[in-house]
Amino acid sequence: MRTRVWCGTTAALLGLLAAGCGTDAKDRADGSEGKTAGGYPVTVADCTGAETTFDAAPKKIVTSNASSLELLLRLGAGDKVIGTGFPPGKGTLPGELDAQAQKVPVLGKAVIAKEKLLGSGADVYIDTFASMSGMGGGGMGDAPSEAEFKTAGIKHIYLKSTACAPMGKGPVTDLSAVEGDITSLGAVTGTTAKAQELVTGMKTKVDAVQKAVAATPQSARPTYFFFDYDAGTKQPTVVCNRQIANALITLAGARNAFADCDGDFKQVGWENVVSKNPDWIQLGVRDRGSEAANKQAFDEAQRWLETNAATQGLKAVKEGHFLRIGSERTTIAGVANADTVQEIAKALYPGKVG
């Protein structure tokens, strides 16, 4: 699989039928050139500008993980999904979305095996990984080449907000790339109206938070550490400035303690965390499938910080400034990112954020 390079996704993608950095400016401006009355053909581009054109909505979709699956479910295109990798745990998604997600065949509990993916019968594969560290193209399995996808009759497209962000040219500080992915998937699956509704809802929530925290200067905003408990405690894994979590933290009116780290994730030493001495710590726990199991995991993460010699003296620990927000909706692109922004801001700015 060839290396992907971030080419930038902006808010201008909203409402467009032709998404991606490689499409012609005129096409992207009016969204109509060369299209049929039903909205097709639709062209999307990967991070290098390589284009994929759809003459009709795909009928058999395979998703690489729960992120792209959830977006399709929210768009109302979940009935087209014939398989997924990294499935969401039972109870991870809200209400009816969870019931729908549990019916999707699991092609792999982690990365889908190459042979299974190519033989799935899919007409499109939505890839969340691409150049993500340790995923796609090597670290977690032998990914198919573009030629192999073509031979199998599978169109290969990406969620650029996650697949390309690690190769970005600068920090991720807003949700425009996530919104662009939603808009692009809406165009591909013929659910543009629903995509616009989802994006509008996200923007409404985030804009309200931005207005509420606007008066607080950057230098006065609290520092924030995402403690990825499930990544292990021997050596902490931190979120850097090109991870979607950096955008959520920034939009919520905080300062990512590791915003000076270029990339998505990085392992550091506890001495680095101590030197940052964050004002707030998010207990990053992956969904365990039930409220009781989640509470137990959050309790364990907090207890570890409170009893570990290296962390018990941190300002956030001594003041009890912990947030219990799941890892998935913080570090994986999706509609719930806006809810996380709102939840962080409510904790950090009590009385200011509704």
Score class of each variant (00 low, 15 high):
residue 3 T to I: 10
residue 12 A to R: 11
residue 15 G to N: 09
residue 18 A to K: 05
residue 21 C to R: 04
residue 26 K to S: 09
residue 28 R to G: 12
residue 29 A to D: 12
residue 29 A to I: 07
residue 31 G to H: 06
residue 33 E to L: 15
residue 36 T to E: 03
residue 47 C to Y: 03
residue 51 E to K: 15
residue 54 F to T: 06
residue 63 T to M: 01
residue 70 E to V: 00
residue 70 E to I: 00
residue 81 V to D: 10
residue 90 K to T: 14
residue 95 G to E: 15
residue 107 L to Y: 13
residue 108 G to W: 04
residue 108 G to C: 06
residue 110 A to I: 03
residue 116 K to C: 03
residue 121 G to L: 12
residue 125 Y to W: 08
residue 127 D to G: 07
residue 130 A to H: 14
residue 131 S to M: 15
residue 135 M to E: 07
residue 136 G to Y: 08
residue 145 S to T: 15
residue 147 A to M: 06
residue 148 E to Q: 13
residue 151 T to M: 05
residue 155 K to E: 10
residue 155 K to C: 05
residue 158 Y to M: 01
residue 160 K to V: 11
residue 169 K to E: 11
residue 178 V to Y: 04
residue 179 E to Q: 15
residue 184 S to Y: 05
residue 184 S to R: 14
residue 186 G to Y: 06
residue 187 A to I: 09
residue 188 V to D: 14
residue 192 T to G: 07
residue 192 T to E: 12
residue 196 Q to K: 10
residue 198 L to N: 10
residue 198 L to G: 11
residue 201 G to P: 03
residue 202 M to I: 04
residue 205 K to H: 02
residue 206 V to P: 02
residue 207 D to C: 00
residue 213 V to I: 12
residue 215 A to E: 03
residue 225 F to V: 02
residue 243 Q to N: 14
residue 248 L to H: 02
residue 250 T to P: 00
residue 250 T to H: 12
residue 251 L to D: 01
residue 256 N to T: 09
residue 257 A to V: 10
residue 257 A to M: 04
residue 258 F to I: 14
residue 258 F to K: 09
residue 259 A to K: 14
residue 259 A to P: 15
residue 260 D to F: 06
residue 269 G to M: 06
residue 271 E to L: 01
residue 274 V to E: 07
residue 276 K to A: 09
residue 280 W to F: 15
residue 282 Q to V: 15
residue 283 L to V: 03
residue 285 V to E: 08
residue 291 E to R: 13
residue 291 E to V: 13
residue 295 K to V: 04
residue 295 K to Q: 15
residue 297 A to I: 09
residue 299 D to E: 14
residue 301 A to Y: 04
residue 302 Q to I: 11
residue 304 W to E: 00
residue 305 L to C: 01
residue 307 T to L: 00
residue 311 T to M: 00
residue 312 Q to A: 09
residue 316 A to Y: 01
residue 323 L to R: 00
residue 327 S to Q: 07
residue 330 T to D: 07
residue 333 A to N: 13
residue 337 N to R: 10
residue 339 D to L: 02
residue 342 Q to T: 15
residue 343 E to M: 05
residue 344 I to W: 02
residue 345 A to L: 09
residue 346 K to D: 07
residue 349 Y to F: 10
residue 351 G to A: 06
residue 354 G to R: 15
